[in-house]
């Protein structure tokens, strides 16, 4: 069983966001970069499948030099090898460009029995790459998986939807994206961290992936980035609990007009 896991390095959610002078992105410095939490679920699931059925886990990440830290984290958890897609040409790529590069990399390493991703990359929060990848690779997809059971050439996947869960059966290979609830990711052991240092990271640029500038031309661009509008200052409601309750209802009705 060969499993490819797509990994994105993202700002830690606690990081204070500063907007760059161009006003269209964030300042990269002083940001604490981590593996996107949903991708950790994907890595963990791949490792559990490997432990149960044997096989190999390959990580793929697109990003600047620092993305190697994310790959090392995944290798330390137990993945076997990693591919780092790095090229200045990727800087302006949008979700489609990223998906094209990942798809090319996946094809380049001979495909997989299963491609796992997080259901969204924290920060951008697009939830696009799994579906784009599946579409570009012409593979079936199941997104937002909270349970995966592998059978012969197929997988049974439980997926979360509004007010219900769906059970899907998909042929393999397939792209499956991980939702919270799928598993509890392990921490890398000291031994794992040491072993990860010796594992290979294969670096590929756009040319090695057979991608030309036109393939990466963005279809969507961030024109500007702003801090959210400030919310009005809180209005504290005084009095004993009974008074507070009645006053709140009055305000919700008369002032906020939400009840």
């Amino acid at each position: 069983m060969k499993i490819i896991v797509c990994v994105k390095q993202v700002p830690d959610t606690e990081t204070r966001i500063r907007i760059n002078p161009e006003g269209n992105g964030i300042v990269d410095q002083d940001v604490n970069w981590v593996v996107s939490p949903y991708d950790e679920f994907a890595i963990e699931e791949a490792l559990r499948i490997k432990e149960a059925k044997g096989g190999e886990v390959v990580l793929v990440s697109l990003g600047p030099d620092r993305a190697q830290t994310a790959l090392r984290n995944g290798l330390a958890m137990g993945a076997d090898s990693a591919v780092h897609l790095k090229d200045a040409a990727f800087d302006a790529a949008d979700t489609m460009g990223v998906a094209k590069a990942l798809a090319a990399a996946i094809k380049g390493i001979g495909g997989a029995d299963l491609v796992l991703t997080g259901q969204q990359g924290v920060g951008g929060d697009h939830s696009q790459v799994p579906g784009l990848l599946a579409g570009l690779l012409d593979l079936p997809q199941v997104t937002m998986a909270i349970k995966i059971e592998l059978g012969e050439g197929k997988a049974t996947v439980t997926r979360e939807i509004e007010g219900a869960s769906e059970v899907w059966e998909t042929a393999l290979p397939a792209v499956i994206s991980a939702q919270k609830g799928l598993n509890e990711p392990r921490y890398a052991s000291l031994k794992g961290i040491m072993a990860a240092k010796k594992k290979a990271i294969d670096v590929k640029d756009a040319a090695a992936l057979g991608l030309a500038a036109a393939d990466l031309a963005p279809l969507t661009t961030v024109a500007s980035l702003e801090l959210p509008p400030a919310r009005p200052a809180v209005r504290m409601i005084d009095g004993d609990p009974e008074t507070q309750a009645r006053e709140l209802l009055r305000l919700l009705h008369e002032e906020a007009k939400v009840i």
Binding site: D94, T95, M96, A99, H126, S127, Q128, V129, P130, G131, L132, A134, G135, L136, Q141, T143, M144, R159, E160, I161, E162, P218, L219, T220
Partner: peptide, 19 residues
Amino acid sequence: TAMGKDLAPRVAAATGAGL
């Protein structure tokens, strides 16, 4: 929605639309 989130990228990949 859960369905739209699943569907839209697949349609974007097929039609080449920016999403």
